[in-house]
């Protein structure tokens, strides 16, 4: 049974067709990777799903709800968590408060005028931080954290409202290779435990092939391949785009202008 169904998605920017009739689904508990060279339309596709952009055509349904036309915050309420390519946290708050903030919003208490925010949902927040291995840093300010730690905080924030699906835009961008594997392994573990579906984009093919249940490949706004990691790796069209340099990762940048 699919959680997310994307059908006929199309978007153009001033005559440039960024997305063209994109269709795919995401099953419950599945980890789906979206790959493609730079400029393939991954970000556009992602932003159409999370509400940042409105596509010209097509539909995105999540658990029976049409997402097109909803602002990001409404999509979040339906049970969609997000992490960003460049981490976005609340720099003036502690790690725990960042998670508490998401919990406050989840429990619809953002307008509460009197209770002290730091005392709200604290146990729940600490449990989440425990899950991502950040509990010992709960009282540090986000503005002083290492980048890898920020990524974990983001993950905890994204998990706060018990989402059914996570949208992760290049979750390991900007991290050292070792950390990348560790973060994605952590993520995979958590989502499998909780039965959360994940759609993520990624440049690091090691990360992709290690964690994805299924892969879709975009090129010039079109979905050109879809299947298990093994199937995608063997797909000649994918190889044509990515190969050349031998390694899929190294070829990614060159392929953008091919």
């Amino acid at each position: 049974m699919s959680v997310l169904t994307v059908s006929g998605l199309a978007k153009s920017f001033g005559g440039v067709q960024a997305l063209r009739d994109v269709n795919f689904t995401l099953a419950a508990g599945e980890i789906l990777a979206m790959i493609g060279p730079n400029g393939a339309g991954k970000s556009t596709c992602f932003n159409c799903i999370n509400g940042q952009l409105r596509p010209d055509l097509g539909s995105v349904t999540f658990a029976g709800h049409e997402l097109i036309g909803l602002p990001p915050r409404r999509i979040w309420r339906l049970g969609v968590g997000r992490t960003f390519q460049i981490t976005a946290t609340f720099g003036s708050m502690t790690v725990a408060e960042n998670v508490q903030m998401a919990l406050i919003s989840h429990h619809r208490r953002t307008r509460a005028p009197w209770t002290l925010a730091t005392r709200l949902h604290r146990e729940e927040a600490l449990a989440l931080l425990d899950a991502v291995g950040m509990r010992d840093q709960a009282e540090r300010r986000c503005s002083v954290l290492a980048y890898g730690d920020l990524k974990r905080v983001e993950l905890a924030v994204a998990l706060a409202h018990g989402p059914r699906m996570l949208l992760m835009d290049e979750p390991t961008a900007g991290m050292a290779p070792k950390e990348r594997i560790a973060l994605m392994a952590l993520t995979a573990g958590i989502v499998h435990d909780r039965g959360i579906s994940v759609l993520f984009t990624e440049h690091d093919m090691d990360v992709v092939f290690a964690n994805a249940d299924r892969i879709i490949v975009l090129n010039r706004g079109e979905l050109i391949a879809e299947g298990t990691p093994a199937a995608v790796r063997d797909n000649p069209m994918v190889q044509e785009i990515y190969l050349g340099a031998g390694s899929m990762f190294g070829a990614a940048a060159a392929g953008a202008h091919a």
Partner: peptide, 14 residues
């Protein structure tokens, strides 16, 4: 320092 103020700060920070 209530949730409301934290929400404001959240909007300011990011």
């Amino acid at each position: 320092f209530a949730p409301f103020g934290y929400t404001l700060r959240a909007g300011r920070d990011s």
